[in-house]
Structures are given as C-alpha cells and as structure tokens.
Amino acid sequence: MAASLSLQLWQRADRHRRLLLVACQGYLVLMALYDAWVWASKAGRLPSIYLPIYGLYLVVGALEMQFVHIVWHLQQRYRLLNRLKTQRDRLKAGVKYEKIRAYSSNGNYTPNQQLLILHSLCDIHAELYDAVDAVNSAYGFQILVHTLSIFLHCIISPYFFLLNLLYPMTYGQTDPAFLSLQLMWILIHVSKLFLVVQPCSATCNEAKKTGSIVVKLLNVELQLPMKRQLEVFAMQLIHRNVEFSAFGFCNLDFPLIASIAGAVTTYLVILIQFQNSDTGSTPNNPAN
C-alpha cells in the first residue's frame, strides 16, 4: 500500500514537472510572437534576420528543458534512495526500485536480506553517480555556452531597458509595449538561469543527505557484516561527490547565481556611468 501510494505521488509530480516544462516552452513561443509583433509595428515589417534568432531561442529552450528533465529524474531517484535507508529504524524497501525487491510482505528481513538490500543500495548509488557523470559529459559544453549567453543577456537587456527608461529624450523609446517587452525578456533570462540551477542544486543536496544517513546508521548497533558494508558505502560517498558543472568551469548551484548577480550589477553601474559621461546628462534630465 505504501509503495503504491509513493509511486502514485511520484508519477503525479513527474506529470506536473512535464507540464511545467511544456508551459515554459510555450511561453517562449508566445514571447517570440510578441517580440515579432512589437518590432514589426515599429519598423513596418519584421526584419528577416530575426526569424533564425527566434528559431535558435526555441532550439536552445528545448535543450534546456531536456537537461532539466533529466536532472529532475536524478533528484527523484536520489530521494527514493534516501527513503529506502531512512524508513523507520531498519533497512526496509517502502518503494521498489530496479534491483531492490520486497523480500517479505510483512517487512521483516533477516540479517542476510538486510545485507543484500544495503549492497543493492551501494550499487544503485554508484549507478546514479555514473548517470550524473554522463549528464555532465553530454551537456557540459552546451550548458557552459548557455550560461555565458544568459550572463551576457542579463547585462545587455537591463542596460538598454534602463537607457530607454532613464533617458527617454535621448533614445526616444517611450512606447510602453517596447518597455514591457524588454522587461519580459529580462525576466525570461533570469528565469532560465534559475530553471537550470535549481534542479542541479536540489539534486546535489539530496545526494549529500545520503552521507548523513550512512553516518547515522554507523552509530547504530549493527552486526559486523552490516558495519563493514556501511563503511564501504561511506568510503564510496567520500570519493564520489555529486556535482553538476558547466564543462568544469563552474558548478551549477545557487552561489553561481549570486556571482552572476554581483557581476551584472557591477557592469551595469559601470555602463551607466560611461553613458552619463558620454551624453553629459543625468537620468531624466538630458543635456541641452
């Protein structure tokens, strides 16, 4: 009963995640259409060079959704792995996962069966680490380019938005539709950064919980074979640290967002100061 309920909750959460990814991709399509309409209304016709740009945005968005979907599934499997080790005070499999089977209907296991379950958990953790390593190898370079693109867009889009907002007489872009379009693109770039970093950070945090659980089990009075298997598991956790990286240049976690936010703020302040010196004006008070 518990296994069936957990499986239903997992499937429901997976459906919600898929709907969220489809909604994000649909939002990109709507933004591309809105952007095309704004530029076409201002220029009289849509520049043909914008069409491949819109197509590239959708392709990159699909790649990002695929990466996020895979990482979300890895997070769910680490969570199931931790549940298998923390259910009550014994190693009971409340949720079935690949090699792990319920050895008895009442949940009472012999020492040999518990040792076999623990050994299966070690194998599953090793396979999950190999899966994370495969994801880093397959998507590392793409995520690096994607992160650099988001970083540049997080500088360029707010810069031109602030120019049009603070210097309307100089740049002449006071159309609310144009300003709202720029603001929406800024929100999209920031959201795309969070969409990539959040599941990676959550998966790493879930993987780190495994070490805490193993340490707690080592402090429990167990038979010698179980102790030795837990020590082997602990050594495996030490040498296999789960991390997602952008081609090895930076780790995909929340400190990366803080670093990007600080760098973007610094560049924006410098660019606005240069703009003041070039135009000889201050915001909302243009020079004559």
Rank of each mutant, 00 (worst) to 15 (best):
D89H: 12
W72I: 01
M235K: 14
H73G: 12
P52G: 04
A23G: 02
I270L: 12
P286E: 08
L271W: 05
G44E: 05
Q114P: 00
Y27V: 00
H73S: 05
Q25N: 11
A23V: 01
L163E: 01
K92A: 12
A93Q: 07
V264T: 13
N219M: 14
Q87G: 10
S180T: 07
A93F: 09
A43W: 08
I117Q: 06
I70M: 03
L63P: 00
L84M: 13
A138Y: 11
Q142R: 04
N106A: 03
Q11V: 03
S245C: 06
S157N: 10
I143A: 02
I238M: 09
I117K: 06
L116F: 02
L81S: 02
V135H: 01
T203N: 14
N205G: 15
L5H: 06
R228I: 15
L80C: 08
A93I: 14
A207P: 14
S137M: 05
L80S: 07
L163Q: 14
I70P: 00
V215H: 14
N108P: 00
L30P: 01
S281H: 11
L21A: 03
A138F: 06
Y139R: 01
K96Q: 11
H73N: 07
S191Y: 08
V196W: 01
L183E: 13
S277A: 12
H239E: 12
T86R: 08
V95P: 02
C250K: 08
C204N: 13
D89A: 09
V95N: 04
M65N: 09
I270P: 03
I257W: 05
M169C: 15
A134F: 03
K92Q: 10
F254S: 09
Q236H: 14
A261S: 13
G61H: 00
T86K: 07
Y171W: 13
N251G: 04
C154Q: 14
W10V: 01
R17S: 10
F274E: 12
Q275P: 04
N164R: 00
P286H: 05
Q76D: 12
L116A: 09
A207Q: 14
G94K: 02
D133L: 10
S137R: 09
Y50G: 00
R88A: 06
W10N: 08
I156V: 13
H119T: 10
K99I: 10
A246G: 11
K42D: 12
L116G: 02
Q76P: 01
I270E: 07
I117Y: 04
L218F: 13
K42C: 06
V29M: 06
L5S: 10
V68L: 06
Y167S: 07
S104V: 02
L63D: 01
V242Q: 02
R101F: 05
V29S: 05
L144F: 10
Q223P: 12
Q8Y: 11
V71D: 01
E127R: 13
I213D: 13
S201W: 14
S201F: 09
Y129K: 10
F194I: 13
S212F: 15
G94D: 08
L217G: 02
